[in-house]
């Protein structure tokens, strides 16, 4: 019965049923128990869909730029997906998701699927389930999928590892910020977009950005810098050309597929490993709190618990091998 529900929902995603796909996205977001089997059914290691990440400070024009990029890819006959992440309130857990407001040009276009997500406490500018949501979009043949981050904290780092191409959006008036930006951030974007080029201060921004890019030790990693105005549309073609260049140069589609698989497996190992270890320690000591008490009472140390966990995984494997021999 369960598996027929899984196949039914996965089938709806594949047949591009928007209501079914929206439901599956919610199940993924909510950590519904059927989400993993659905994702298993949808997963295609060879999928070629492109993920374009868009990051930068709040107000930089990420949503307005996304609106422009949607128009461009629609004109070229692509079905476009968008995941727009905004912060959830740490107090109420609620969120005001307003990115759609700037994407109204495509509000009734059936070839565009826009999904807004609250980050639900996940640090890093994305929601904890953005990675899995991308597989759902891919299975319904949305290509490319544009991911707008909430643009604070470590957003740049996280989106760069998830997306195939990352745009870092900067605006005039950010000169000081650019100079004091943490080392490494500038190298993360494949393309640095200097938006609001219609505003004064764009030349100065360009100067600051180029000066700090000159400091990158490996200049082959130097990102392309494009200035444009998402508001007027001026310079957007230069940007889409630069994105196309990025895909053909260096990041071929096969390379992308391998990188993506590695990323997904790595984070699943990390999450499941954490879950398993936490559960085992809780089972053994009653709770994590009680394990801490035992350490404070001098009965054990964190390192001994670590050794115990390694032993647990080893034994599990031996048991499994024994089962196979029987």
């Amino acid at each position: 019965m369960l598996s027929s529900e899984v196949e039914d929902l996965a089938g709806k995603v594949r047949s591009k049923d928007q209501r079914g796909m929206a439901r599956v996205l919610s199940m993924v977001e909510n950590g519904h128990p059927l989400a993993p089997p659905i994702l298993h059914s949808l997963y295609n290691p060879e999928r070629s869909g492109l993920t374009i990440g868009i990051t930068g400070y709040p107000g930089a024009g990420k949503s307005t730029l996304t609106n422009r990029l949607i128009a461009y890819y629609r004109k070229h006959g692509c079905k476009v997906g968008v995941i727009a992440v905004d912060p959830s309130s740490p107090f109420s857990g609620g969120a005001l998701l307003g990115d759609r407001l700037r994407m109204q040009d495509h509000a009734s276009d059936p070839g565009v699927f826009i999904r807004s997500m609250g980050n639900r406490g996940h640090l890093g500018g994305l929601s904890g389930t953005t990675r899995d949501a991308l597989e759902v979009f891919a299975a319904a043949s949305y290509d490319p999928v544009l991911v707008e981050t909430m643009g604070v904290g470590q957003a740049e780092v996280e989106i760069a590892s998830l997306a195939d191409i990352t745009l870092l959006v900067l605006v005039p008036g950010l000169g000081d910020e650019v100079q004091t930006m943490k080392a490494g951030i500038m190298e993360i974007g494949n393309i640095i977009v200097l938006n609001k080029a219609d505003r004064p201060g764009i030349e100065q921004l360009e100067m600051f950005v180029n000066a700090s890019l000159d400091l990158i030790p490996d200049q082959t990693l130097r990102p392309t810098v494009i200035s444009c105005s998402a508001l007027s549309g001026e310079g957007i073609e230069k940007l889409t050309d630069a994105i196309a260049n990025c895909v053909s140069f260096g990041t071929g589609r096969r390379v992308i597929a391998r990188r993506r698989t590695k990323l997904i497996l790595r984070s699943i190992i990390r999450e499941k490993g954490k879950e398993l270890a936490r559960k085992h320690v809780s089972d053994r000591y009653g709770s994590i709190e009680e394990a801490i008490e035992s350490i404070l009472e001098g009965k054990t140390t964190p390192y001994e618990i670590g050794e115990m966990l390694s032993g647990f995984l080893e034994n599990k494997r031996e048991n499994e091998n024994e089962c196979k021999r029987d």
Partner: peptide
Amino acid sequence: GMEVIYTGIRQTPEAIVNAAIQED
């Protein structure tokens, strides 16, 4: 504590319904 999608002014009924479906 709710997640609220605000679509802004001047929406057609089609656009509102489309958004409601996609946003589940």
